[in-house]
Computed example of a mutant assay.
Amino acid sequence: MTIEPSTIALVITTFDDPGAADEFSARLLDDGLIACVNRVGPVTSSYHWQGKVCRDEEYQLHMKTSLERVSDLKAAIERLHPYDCPEVLILQAGSSQSYSQWVKQCVQTTP
């Protein structure tokens, strides 16, 4: 299998409620911003927040999109996410050519 240079992105965010994570995922899929999402968890997150160290159970969303749609996806996360400061990690990802083409096809915008 040949790995294509980076043409897609893996975007990660977290939720404290699995139902909310699923609803959020469905909205992004319906809006054509992501081709695929994996809900992982629960995971234990430890972090600094408002002068304290917190430890909570969360659910990670691993979302796949094209590099062209990353800005739109980031804006949607910032607009729709219930957290005051949502995690938005954006990683460029190489992939097989067929997977990359599938992702691009799923999230392409119409001219």
Rank of each mutant, 00 (worst) to 15 (best):
T2S: 09
T2Y: 07
I3F: 15
I3L: 15
S6Y: 00
I8P: 11
I8N: 13
A9N: 10
L10R: 11
V11H: 00
T13N: 03
T13F: 04
T14A: 08
F15G: 03
D16T: 14
D16H: 13
D16S: 15
D17G: 07
G19K: 07
G19S: 11
G19N: 13
G19E: 13
G19F: 08
E23Y: 12
E23R: 14
F24K: 01
F24W: 07
S25Q: 05
A26S: 15
A26Q: 15
R27I: 12
R27Q: 10
L28A: 07
L33K: 00
L33Q: 02
L33D: 09
A35C: 11
V37H: 03
V37D: 05
N38K: 03
N38Y: 01
V40A: 02
T44E: 13
S45I: 03
S45D: 06
S45H: 07
S45A: 14
S46A: 13
S46Q: 13
S46F: 09
Y47A: 04
H48C: 09
H48N: 08
Q50P: 00
Q50G: 01
G51P: 03
K52N: 12
K52L: 10
V53M: 04
V53N: 06
R55V: 14
R55K: 15
D56H: 09
D56G: 08
E58L: 04
Y59E: 00
Q60K: 07
L61V: 08
H62D: 08
H62T: 09
M63H: 03
M63W: 04
M63T: 06
K64G: 08
K64S: 05
K64E: 10
T65A: 08
T65I: 09
S66V: 03
E68F: 07
D72E: 07
D72A: 14
L73E: 08
K74T: 14
A75M: 09
A75F: 01
A76C: 10
A76G: 02
H81D: 05
P82G: 02
P82L: 01
Y83N: 05
Y83M: 02
C85W: 01
P86T: 03
P86D: 00
P86I: 00
E87P: 00
E87I: 02
E87F: 01
V88K: 09
V88Q: 07
I90N: 00
I90L: 03
Q97C: 06
Q97D: 11
S98F: 05
S100F: 10
W102A: 04
W102T: 05
V103R: 12
V103I: 14
V103P: 12
Q105R: 10
V107L: 05
T109W: 01
T109D: 11
T109P: 01
